[in-house]
Design a binder for these strands. Sequence first.
DNA 1: ACTATCGGGACCTCCCGTTGTT
DNA 2: AACAACGGGAGGTCCCGATAGT
Lengths: 196, 196, 196, 196
Amino acid sequence: MAEPPPNRQPPSSRTAFIEATADLMRRQGYGATAISEIVALSGAPKGSLYFHFPGGKEQLAAEAVSSAGERLRGQIAAILSSSDDLAVCIGRLIDALAAGLERSDYQRGCPIATVTLEAASASEAIRVSADAVFGSWLTVLAARMRADGLDPAAAERRATFVLSAVEGALILARARGQLEPLIAVRQELTAGPFGR
Amino acid sequence: MAEPPPNRQPPSSRTAFIEATADLMRRQGYGATAISEIVALSGAPKGSLYFHFPGGKEQLAAEAVSSAGERLRGQIAAILSSSDDLAVCIGRLIDALAAGLERSDYQRGCPIATVTLEAASASEAIRVSADAVFGSWLTVLAARMRADGLDPAAAERRATFVLSAVEGALILARARGQLEPLIAVRQELTAGPFGR
Amino acid sequence: MAEPPPNRQPPSSRTAFIEATADLMRRQGYGATAISEIVALSGAPKGSLYFHFPGGKEQLAAEAVSSAGERLRGQIAAILSSSDDLAVCIGRLIDALAAGLERSDYQRGCPIATVTLEAASASEAIRVSADAVFGSWLTVLAARMRADGLDPAAAERRATFVLSAVEGALILARARGQLEPLIAVRQELTAGPFGR
Amino acid sequence: MAEPPPNRQPPSSRTAFIEATADLMRRQGYGATAISEIVALSGAPKGSLYFHFPGGKEQLAAEAVSSAGERLRGQIAAILSSSDDLAVCIGRLIDALAAGLERSDYQRGCPIATVTLEAASASEAIRVSADAVFGSWLTVLAARMRADGLDPAAAERRATFVLSAVEGALILARARGQLEPLIAVRQELTAGPFGR
DNA sequence: ACTATCGGGACCTCCCGTTGTT
DNA sequence: AACAACGGGAGGTCCCGATAGT
C-alpha cells in the first residue's frame, strides 16, 4: 500500500502490473484472475512482480483498487463540475458509466464492487482499500451537494444514496446484459421526485 | 438447470449441495468457493455430486442462485404485504437485510450480486440465472407499486430504482463494515422526497 | 470369459456392451476408453453392466477382444479361400484392411494390437485373450499355407511372418495417416521374392 | 516441441522427465502412465514439470517419443553397419530387440508403437512425432538397402516391409509372452526367399 | 435385470510464491 | 530488476465399482 517512489520516471513495470490487475479484476474479480494472466497482460517481466509487490496478489489487488478508484474519482469530479445543474451532472455520470459498460460487452462495471464482494471477507487490506475508494467518491459527491445547498448531514446521506443506486444499477445491468436498469435509475434520479 | 422430478421426496443430497453452495458463495463468491468445501459443508457424499450436477461447479452455482433467489423472493413478497404503507414495507425490507448483514459480521450480503459480478462474464448460465432472480424480485416489487397507484411503466422503473439502491447499499456496507450506508438509503427511500 | 448362455435369444444388452467396447478400444485403446463411454455408445442400461460383467472393465475388454477376434477370423478364412492363388488371397486381405482403415480416417486398425500393447503388461486375462485370437488367425493362415504345399513348420513360420508384416504395416499406416506402408507390404508379400 | 537452448548444460530435470516418460510409456502406454508416476520415477521436482512442458502430458509424450526414437535410430544405424552382409545385420537387429524384450519380461517392446496405437487418434502432435520417428528409421534402413544395390523405390519398399515385420512380431511376442514370433520373422527375413 | 444413488480415490492441470543467479 | 527453476499444494473433474431397492 506504500506508494512507490513519488515521481521520478514512471516505473513502467510497476504501473503496468497495477493496470493489468485493475482491468482483469474489474471483469473477472479477484479469484478468477491469475497472476500469470496479470503478467501476460502487463507485458512486464514476471521476475519483477514479487520485487515490486512482495505482498503478492493481495497487495496487487489492494493497489489496483486504490489506483482505479483514484482515477475514477477524478472523472467523477470533472463530471460533477461540468454543469450548474446537479441533475444534469448525475445524468452525465450515469451516461458515462453506461457507455463504458456497453462498449465492453457488459464486462466492465464498477472496478471496485466486484473485488469488494469477493475479497472483503478474505482480506482486510482489500476491504480497507475499497472502503477508502468509496469514501473518496462520497466526499466528492457530498461536496457537490453541499454546494447545491444541502446541509452536511443531508449531503452525506444523499451522496450515499446516489452512489448506491448507481452501483446497484451496474449490477442489474450486468446480470441482464442490457442498459435498461441504468436508464431507469438515471430517470428516477434526474427526473423523478428527486431530480426535480 | 432443469429441475429434477418436481416433488416426490426431497432428495436430501441434491438439496444439501445446493444449500451449501448458496451459503458459501454468498460470502465468498464463486471463485473462492471450492467444491471440496461445498462437499464438506453439505455433509452429502462426494461421489454423488457429479451424479446430480453433471455440469459441475457452474451448474451448481446456477442452481444455487436460483434457489436462494426464490427463497428471498418469498421473503420479499411477505414483507411487502405486511403493511398498507409502502414506505413502511421498504423500511422493513432494508431492516431485515441490515440485520442479516450485521449478524454475519458483514459477510452475508446479497446472495446473487457477488456471484453475478464474478461469474457473469465467464458463464452465461450463471448470468441468466441471476437475471431471472433479479427479474422475479422486480416483478414482486413492481406489483406492489402498481397496487400503490403507479402506472406499469413507472412501477417498473421505481422497482428497479429501489432494488438498485438496496443492492448498492449492501456493497458499500460490506466495504465499510458498517450499516450506515443501508441506513442512509433507508432514510432517503422512506423519508426523503420519495417516501413522502 | 465364460461364454454367456449359449444361444437362446440374443441377449441384446450383453452383446451391445461387447460391441461398443470392441469398437471404442479399437480406436482408443483400453485406458482411454471409459466405462461410461461404453454404456453411452451401447445404448444399454448402465445398471446391467456389472450384472453381465462382474469382472468389470477387464473382463469386458477380454471378451471384446475374443469377440472381435472371432469375427475377424471368419473374414480372414473367407478371403483365404477366395482364390487358388495364395498371393491373390493375401492381396485381398490387405486390401480389405486398408479399406477399413481409410474409411475410418485411420482410426480403426487392428482391434487386438492396441489393447495388447497397452494392457498386456497389466492384465493377464487380456493378454491371454489376445494371444488366443492371434493364435486362431495363425491357425487359419497356416492351414492355407499347408494347403499350398508347405510343410507344417514352414507354414507356421510363414503364417507368423505374414501376420507380423500386416500388423506392423497397420501401425505404420496409422502413424503416417496414409496407406502407403500397407501398399508396400502388399507388394513385397505378393510380388516380391515371396509372392513369386 | 521446440527443443530448448540447444546444448549448454543438460538441464537435468527436463531430461529426467522425458526419460521417465519414455520408459513408462514403452511399457504401459499413454493412458496408463500417470504424471505422478513420471514425476516419481524421474526424481525431478514436480513443480518444474509444467514449466518445462506447458503442453502437459501430450507434449511430454510427444517429446518422449522423439527422444526414444532418436536413440533407437542410432542403435539401428550402428547395427546396420556392423557387417557387409545385410541379412546378418537384420538378424542382429532382431536379436537385440528380442534380448531387450525377454530381459524385461516382455514388457519393453517398441517404444513408439504402443503410444502410436493409443494416442494417434487423440493427439496429432503425438501422431506426427511417431511418424517422424518411423520415418527416420526407414531412412536409415533404406540407405542400407540402396548400399546393397537396390534402387531407391525398391529400397524404400523393402525397408518398410522389414520394419513392419519386426514391429508386428514384437506385438505377437508380447501377446504370447514368448520370443517365437520374433524368431520366425528373423528366419524368414534372413534365411527365406528374402535373405537369400 | 435394472435403477438411483453412493464412495472415495485418482486423474491432469495450474497456481502462487520462493530461491539462487545474474 | 529480472530470470529460470523449484516446490508442493489444491483446483475441478470424472471414473470405476458397490449398494440397496425393485
